[in-house]
């Protein structure tokens, strides 16, 4: 096979024994390719001579020690991680319990506030009733002192019964301010007394007008 100078690079690229042999054959008759091939082979020869070895009896024991040290330091690391995890879980538990307590306290406080607020509202309503009743009583007093008609007499009796019931309720409330049932009864009795006084006033006007 005839090899041209242009093909030398292809042969060197392939780099296998057969290709290099063909390149060598061509270089025997071509000075330019001879120089090129000589340098090529010189580099390879020099490179191969650079393969190095030296006695290193201490290297393996060094590696063994390094691995053993790392294995030893890895074990306490696992323990440290486990301890840190346990502490974290413990702290999380304590925090959760504290939050729960705080939440319960807050709930109780909120409920107490609600109760106080509701009571205040009820007491304000009672006061409004009392003011209205006092005003009506002043107006109705002359007609109730000496009732002129049977109906006014029955209104007067009804009002006396209501006053007794109201007094009883107020005694109960003095013992337990938060008794909602008694409060409700008192309010309905105030309302009833207010309505009755209004009826008295209407009845009185009806009587005096004719």
């Amino acid at each position: 096979m005839t090899i041209t100078c242009e093909r030398i690079d292809d042969l060197l690229f392939e780099g296998d024994a057969a290709s290099l042999e063909l390149a060598e054959t061509h270089a025997r008759g071509c000075l330019a390719c001879r120089e090129k091939l000589d340098d090529w082979n010189d580099i390879s020869r020099t490179a191969k001579s650079m393969q190095t070895t030296w006695p290193s009896d201490t290297l393996w024991p060094r590696i063994q020690r390094a691995i053993a040290n790392e294995t030893r330091s890895r074990a306490p690391m696992i323990l440290r991680v486990a301890a840190a995890l346990a502490v974290t879980i413990g702290l999380a538990g304590i925090l959760a319990y504290a939050l729960h307590l705080h939440h319960e306290k807050q709930k109780a406080f909120d409920q107490a506030i609600l109760r106080v607020t509701a009571l205040d509202e009820v007491e304000r309503a009672e006061k409004a009733h009392l003011i209205a009743i006092n005003n009506l009583e002043k107006l109705a007093a002359p007609k109730l002192e000496e009732p002129q008609t049977p109906i006014l007499v029955s209104y007067k009796e009804k009002l006396m019964l209501l006053d007794d019931a109201i007094a009883e309720c107020q005694t109960n409330i003095d013992h337990n301010r938060q008794n909602a049932q008694v409060r409700k009864q008192l309010l309905s009795m105030y309302s009833e007394k207010q309505r009755t006084l209004q009826d008295v006033l209407r009845e009185g006007n009806h009587v005096s007008n004719p």
Partner: peptide, 9 residues
């Protein structure tokens, strides 16, 4: 000191 595998270079 390094031991060389080839000493012709």
């Amino acid at each position: 000191p390094i031991e060389r595998t080839a000493s012709t270079v």
